[in-house]
Design a protein around this nucleic acid. Sequence first.
DNA 1: CTGTTAGCGCATTCAT
DNA 2: ATGAATGCGCTAACAG
Lengths: 349, 349
Amino acid sequence: MSASLGAPQGVPTLTDVARVAGVSLATADRVVNRRAGVRPATIARVEAAVAALGFERHAGAADLARRVRHRVTAVLPSGGNPFMRRLGEELSRAARLLGARRLDLTLAAAETLRPTRLAEAIEAAAGLSDAVVAVGLDDPLVAAAIDAAAARGVPVITLVSDVPGSRRSRYVGIDNRAAGRVAGSLVGRFLGPEPAEVAVLLGSRALRDHRDRLDGFAAVLGERFPHLRLAGVWEGEDDPVRARAAVAELLAAHPRIAAVYSAGAGNVGLARALEDAGSQACVVAHELTAETRPLIERGAVDALIAQDAGHEARSALRLALAQLSGTRIDESQERIRIEILLRDNLPEA
Amino acid sequence: MSASLGAPQGVPTLTDVARVAGVSLATADRVVNRRAGVRPATIARVEAAVAALGFERHAGAADLARRVRHRVTAVLPSGGNPFMRRLGEELSRAARLLGARRLDLTLAAAETLRPTRLAEAIEAAAGLSDAVVAVGLDDPLVAAAIDAAAARGVPVITLVSDVPGSRRSRYVGIDNRAAGRVAGSLVGRFLGPEPAEVAVLLGSRALRDHRDRLDGFAAVLGERFPHLRLAGVWEGEDDPVRARAAVAELLAAHPRIAAVYSAGAGNVGLARALEDAGSQACVVAHELTAETRPLIERGAVDALIAQDAGHEARSALRLALAQLSGTRIDESQERIRIEILLRDNLPEA
DNA sequence: CTGTTAGCGCATTCAT
DNA sequence: ATGAATGCGCTAACAG
């Protein structure tokens, strides 16, 4: 048995469509690209031809003919924890591969944690670009900046951290509440049925994604592992030094902590504090970076919840390009997975 | 701060290269595409120009100019468990999206478990195609067929299941030993520190990937969870009915089994047998399919180890195309991940 | 409103 | 061994 795909003799072209519809190439192009100025009757004829032939436009050829270069700028946090730096690199790589000829990527750094600054950065980016990709922040000022850009016709794609109330055209990133749930399940399963105390280390409660993760984590504990008590939530500001201090304090107050869910960054500090205190607590943290890899390899971290920076970067740029040139995309390819990494399934590099 | 990428004024074209090198477009093309018949001195000049300008060829334009269509056929198991069927669908989708104009995909079914049949199918496919993608089998006959195809200039890409000794040009799939290790870690962590008995359910020992998974699983238990004893290894032939029977027998002999690692298919049967016996055993299985999704959702399966069929399909086809047209690829994009799925991070669809 | 025409960057004959 | 010319499928002026 064997099934064949694709037209055997060659895929229909716009010229074919034009011929079948009895119009010129230009007119066919107009209706296919939904450009104005065609009589309804003509539109109908062309659309019939498109349907009859199963025409789909050749993206490569369209690309070639359309000489415009799209300028997109990506706004990333200036401080830059390892994951964010990685994201920047991957955006550059993706730009080179995906749209060498159509895409001018500009990387812009901004204090994405301060609403005013982020909003300014987005506005500035929208001024110079056809589309902007930005690591978001859940704040009205930021939402306003995004809405303003959108109103001007500059689509904004949020990356890694969404801006819920805004008119961003897409969000590329994981569902952070679900990520928190995954962390909760892992901790619940790893600890077993005995009552125990667990703690959460956040970067900051001001960060929407961290709050979402905490919510998801707490929800699972409540639903499925009621014998686990959330003894405390600390903030380490995504910084190793402060994280270490926060955790030290935490352990002093609750020496029996059996597990820590680290929803932010600064995990080296967390690990050190645990070692200092001689704690055997189970640790679940986020993102695979140069910082966390050694930790999971030597067992200081038990599991990592990760998102693939390369995939996110490609996806964001693909979506921006699709948006700008009216191409269709394969939704299933753009779904960002919540990955669970144990030391046994760490990717090579 | 902001960094810009890509030449501001327009990316260099082959024509630019030719001009700078002082040769014609055709000659530039010859060296860029490593075609024969160019004097070494000329090659050097063109390559210098390429380097100086940072030329990279425009894939879209190349696509357009090259009118050849590549025929690739994919050889999949005829029986077809849900995962394999999914793989077929994803190959079709990928073919449509990736190479609508350059790629004729033919899906061929074969009894991939019988070396003779698989070898025949691969030979037949190689006869009609420019490249073949096949779900492999670790057998000398199959390896021979692959080597013969390769010798004829038809590259063979193994998918999901590799053929180690052969000259396949690439293997697209997960590291099954690592997958087994992941399963072992999960079971080890889920069960906790008390001594317990665990069992493994295989499709068949004849399948290389199942054996690899078993090896990895056993290795982790030995290294990190010595208090867990592997009470038995059963074969369910990837079939729900036989799996159920095998597991029933297993439970009769070892009623205290605390966990089962199912390295093959037929998981509905496994779940039913466990329910019949009133066993609360922890279950780790493979692949997210219409069959396993309900199981993990209702808790009959605790974790799933999965590979993304869509990603694998796209990767295999991308590699085939790259091979056939001498394009370069982004290795990091082709790495197939071992995914760990809990009910909290199941993809939507 | 609709048609004609000239390329986009590259691979490919066909000459030389 | 090298060059000139043609066209892939499509978009974008520019004419009517």
